[in-house]
Each structure stands twice: as C-alpha cells, then as structure tokens.
Simulated scan of single mutants.
Amino acid sequence: MARGKIQIRRIENQTNRQVTYSKRRNGLFKKAHELTVLCDAKVSIIMISSTQKLHEYISPSTTTKQMFDQYQQATGIDIWNTHYEKMQEHLKKMKEINRNLRREIRQRMGESLNDLGYEQMVNLIEDIDNSLRLIRERKYKVISNQIDTGRKKLRNVEEIHRNLLLQFEARQEDPQYGLVENDGDYNSVLGFPNGVGPRIVALHLPPDHHHHHHHSAAMQSGASDLTTFALLD
C-alpha cells in the first residue's frame, strides 16, 4: 500500500504541533548523528520551538564556537564583529541615558541651569513641587504610623499598670499578707511569701528597750531580736 503524502502546512492544534515537532526533531538529530559517524562530518543544528525552547545538536568533540568560526571562514562573514558593533551601539545609547539622568539630578539640586529655557525652568519647578508633595505625604504617613505605635505601647503600659494595681489590692485582702504593729512584746509583724512558703517575721524588743545600756549589751552579746513564724495554709 502506497504511503500517502502529508500536506505541508502549519498544524493548527497546539498539542499536535508540539508532538510533531518533538518527533521530527529527534529524527533530524538522529540523521545528523549518523551523518557525523558515517561521513566524518561536522554537523551543527540549532532549533527554537514555538514555545521559545532551544534545542541543538553539535557533532562530538566540537564546540559551538568552533562551528561558528569555521562558518565565518567558509562564508567570509564576520559574525562576531557584527555582534560587537551592536553591543557598542547599545552601550552608546545607555551612556546617553546616563548623562541625561545625571544632568536632571544636578538640575533638581539647583545646578547646571544655564542651558535651560523659560519653559524648561517652569517644567522643572512643577516637577520639584510634585516631588516635594509626594515626600511630604510619605513623611506624614511615617509620623502617623509612629504616633499609632506610641499609642499602642502606651495602652499596653497602662494595662500592665492596672493589672499590677489589681494584684497589689488582692494581696492586701489576702489573710496571708498583712502588717501588725505593737502586738504584745513585738513592735511589728510583717507577713510575706518566700522560696520556702508563707512566713511571719517579727522584730522582738524587750520591755526596757528604751534603755540604751541594755540595748547595747544585747547587741554586743549577739542576742537575736529577729523571730520568724510559719503562716498557716
């Protein structure tokens, strides 16, 4: 049965187009490899798909630069010089843009104004006014944010202060805390918790504590007037 001819035209269906491209690319690379081996030829194939993907085949032991150098020798076309000229032209344009930007910056700082005409001066003033307006808006926004942050911190401090006051009032109402004065032979009794548990520390003074001589003797003898009592849970 004779093989039918395929009409050569663009495949509209994108999926079918990609499948055909992949199959024919592989077949083409296979033929190029056979040609390289059978005929000792140097073959280079560069392909770019419709999706901008690059595919290339280079004969073994050959680089792309070598292929381009041999192409230049065979055709007499200087590919690299043309590319260099394009790069030089692009560099020239970029330098011109850089000079214009630097001149504009100096003019905004009040320098290099001699070459400006009246209309250019008016436009420069408008540009500077617009820039100042944007800077002020940004400045006020930053200040507003700082004020809001300061208010939030102040509210947090006030909340902490209220909590501390509540804790202090709760401790005053707790029977394990208190201050007792002039109870019997004790001048004062202070209740507080420590690492061991709630205790009472009492300062004991003898009845004749007003006599300086007795007080000095007691201090010299090492007698302790500090007495502690455990609180009941």
Rank of each mutant, 00 (worst) to 15 (best):
L190E: 03
D69P: 04
Q107Y: 02
Y71C: 02
D185F: 05
F192V: 14
I48C: 04
F168M: 14
R162W: 07
I125S: 13
R9I: 06
E96R: 05
G191A: 12
A217S: 12
L232T: 06
I143Y: 03
L101A: 02
L190R: 05
E158L: 08
I46F: 12
N163M: 13
V189E: 15
S221F: 05
A170W: 03
F192N: 12
L132K: 09
L116T: 05
K153S: 12
E169W: 07
A217V: 09
R3Q: 14
E119K: 14
N98E: 09
I97N: 15
V189C: 10
L54A: 03
T75V: 02
Y186G: 01
Q88R: 11
T20G: 00
R9D: 09
M121T: 15
T20A: 10
D127R: 11
L164N: 11
M87A: 08
M87K: 15
E119Q: 10
M47G: 06
R106D: 06
V196F: 09
F29C: 01
S221M: 10
K65I: 05
K92Y: 12
Y177V: 10
N182R: 11
S44N: 04
E158I: 12
K31F: 02
E173M: 15
G191V: 11
T82C: 09
Y57W: 02
Q73E: 11
L164I: 15
R103S: 07
I143A: 05
M67E: 06
A41M: 11
A218H: 13
D148V: 07
Q73P: 00
Y71I: 09
I105G: 04
N130L: 11
S49L: 04
R136D: 10
L164K: 10
A202L: 12
L113P: 03
N194D: 15
V196N: 10
D78I: 03
M94N: 13
D208R: 01
H214W: 04
D183C: 02
H55I: 07
Q73V: 04
G195P: 05
P207C: 06
K86N: 15
